[in-house]
Design a protein around this nucleic acid. Structure first.
Lengths: 172, 172
DNA sequence: ACTTGCAATGTTATATCATCACATAGAAAT
DNA sequence: ATTTCTATGTGATGATATAACATTGCAAGT
């Protein structure tokens, strides 16, 4: 469950698509995207919110609110749950992060540039989480909703199972 | 949030497809289906489990574990959380009930006869929940998973929004 | 019939996740 | 400068969930 801290210029497998990628400046990019988005929408990416997003971006995995709270406190912010929950609510509302309902945890958005319906694959073995680009999926749900006369505001799509890495491990 | 108790021979709108249906013997039918399923799989539908399923079937809506626990206690069973959680885990594992992750609540399965991938529409206004028959939806998710090399074991698909009834209400 | 084994239940305690209410501080609007 | 509104900090509490262990009851093997 613990995971190595990301060091500079290192490439390691991470759960964005369960594939290796260069993590180096994806944090800066994502923060910049969030700032732009906030500016465009007349909301503020305050220090706590920004720090919370940074924390989520450090690791591409889902973090519990209290885990985030710990790190916010270490960074000099408030130490009560509401501090974390408020920052997270903001990030989720503004599309910079998603809540993984299955885990009661939060993860930085992996597709912050494009409008998308988030979908996730969650490994039961190593707890890694991959965000899937999946508008087709939503279309199918949308049909059912249309027939029923239901007006969708937000969808949650999460698959639990085994990631490729853990499938390999289980074979040996 | 409260909902009228179902009385005999009455037809009322309920959240199974947000449409009116005859509720009269759907409880008996579902219990019978669960019993058959248990017999076929060498597991036991014990009194607590059966009662928990009955409780869920009484209303076609999502009930929290503690709400179920209250009623189990009233029926003479144990009064501690584990009692409810264990019965619910059993029902979920055996397909007689589903957990609604968005609500941290449980609901009787509306399609207990057929194998299916559960999907739900949840009204933010009246808290009604409709189970959707939606294998197509899963196929789309399955494609993404296949490409990623992820082995899906279980999926959660939930849409929140407004049900037809509440859309109508909001128009007036 | 005994007893061994196992699944299910009950209970105590505690862990984990989340929100409410209210005070204070700081930015934006007038 | 004053007002207003948003954001933050804190204390208290609520809601959801599991761990650990004792007890019971049934069923298989002898």
């Amino acid at each position: 469950m613990t995971r190595a801290i990301q060091t500079k210029n290192e490439k390691l497998p991470d759960p964005v698509g369960f594939a290796t990628h260069d993590h180096n400046d994806c944090i800066d990019t994502a923060i910049a995207a969030a700032e732009t988005h906030c500016a465009n929408n007349g909301v503020r990416l305050t220090p706590v919110r920004r720090k919370a997003l940074e924390i989520l971006l450090q690791e591409h995995r889902a973090l519990g609110a209290y885990e985030i709270l710990d790190r916010l406190r270490d960074a000099g912010f408030g130490s009560q749950p509401a501090v974390a929950y408020r920052a997270l609510e903001f990030l989720v509302t503004n599309g910079s992060a998603h809540k993984i309902e299955r885990l009661n945890a939060f993860i930085a958005c992996a597709h912050s540039k494009v409008s998308h319906v988030p979908a996730f694959m969650i490994c039961t073995e190593c707890d890694s989480v991959a965000e899937v680009q999946s508008n087709l999926t939503n279309k199918a749900f949308g049909n059912a909703a249309h027939v029923a006369g239901f007006r969708i505001e937000q969808t949650t799509m999460e698959a639990v199972g085994l990631c490729p890495v853990c499938i390999d491990k289980s074979k040996t």
